[in-house]
């Protein structure tokens, strides 16, 4: 047993603290973690206090007797600051973004009570790659979580994405001779094309089809939402074709 905020939580050998928490329906804020993909520990949102040490819940194995603090004002304040930094490091224009309401970064911002970016904007210059016929890469919104990198490598059996560069020059790159998405192995049905928690990888010609009030995080808070289900739902949405648009009450009933 481990305890998270005073609640006893069982775990199996090999599980991380994040795995054990998710299995027990305890929400630890996170962006780069995804069950089924190898842990990454890059976004640092899942930072928890384990016996007085600050560690990433998604990478630290659960061990007998750990006393973990998770949902505390101090930790959530740190998480909010991390989220603010993620916002200012990219170019996140929520008002016009098709991912608004379906964006995990935005939802985490709401969850943590983030009201502004706090820090000066970096305004990085990052290129859009619209070369692919059905997919689009908007690097402005990339938070370097590498979910697409891991999904492509570990689930799709390809190696389409990587993160390259340092500091503010860091960005998502594509493994192809030209560096363009069109020349890579990616296909529309790949998990890598649908796993982006923000709007960096988009399905072309789609957007704003789910009315306000019925989008993912209109219906459930990020804490309530099972990420796995979201991805499945999204995949189904985009696989549906024209018939789906005539469903009662909108294109895609939630």
């Amino acid at each position: 047993m481990i305890t998270i905020d005073g609640t006893e939580v069982p775990f199996e050998a090999g599980q991380t603290i994040m795995d054990a928490a998710l299995a027990a329906d305890i929400y630890i804020p996170h962006l780069c973690h995804k069950p089924g993909l190898s842990p990454h520990g890059s976004c640092k949102l899942c930072t928890v206090d384990v016996d007085g040490r600050a560690v990433s819940a998604c990478t630290l194995p659960a061990a007998e007797g750990q006393k973990i603090e998770n949902n505390t004002p101090a930790l959530n304040e740190v998480r909010k600051t991390i989220t603010q930094m993620l916002f200012v490091e990219g170019n996140h224009l929520c008002p016009s973004c098709e991912k608004s309401g379906d964006c995990t970064l935005q939802a985490v911002g709401y969850h943590l009570g983030m009201l502004d970016g706090h820090f000066p904007q970096f305004y990085p210059r990052r290129a859009v790659d619209a070369s692919h016929p059905t997919l689009m890469l908007d690097r402005d919104r990339c938070i370097m979580c590498e979910l697409c990198v891991r999904a492509s490598r570990e689930i799709d059996g390809k190696d389409v994405f990587a993160i390259s560069g340092r500091g503010t020059g860091r960005q998502l790159i594509v493994n192809s001779a030209t560096g363009k998405l069109a020349d890579s192995d990616i296909e529309t049905d790949d998990l890598a094309a649908h796993i982006c928690p923000v709007g960096a990888i988009l399905i072309k010609d789609h957007g704003y089809e789910v009315p306000i009030g019925r989008r993912t995080f209109d219906l459930h808070s990020v804490a309530e939402t099972d990420l796995e289900e979201i991805i499945l739902k999204k995949t189904v949405h985009h696989d549906q074709d024209d018939e789906s648009v005539e469903k009662e009450g909108g294109m895609y009933s939630a």
């Binding site: 008002p95 098709e98 010609d205 957007g207 704003y208």
Partner: peptide, 11 residues
Amino acid sequence: QGRPYWEVPYF
């Protein structure tokens, strides 16, 4: 310029 066309009404 450079933004996808379906974003335009929202932009």
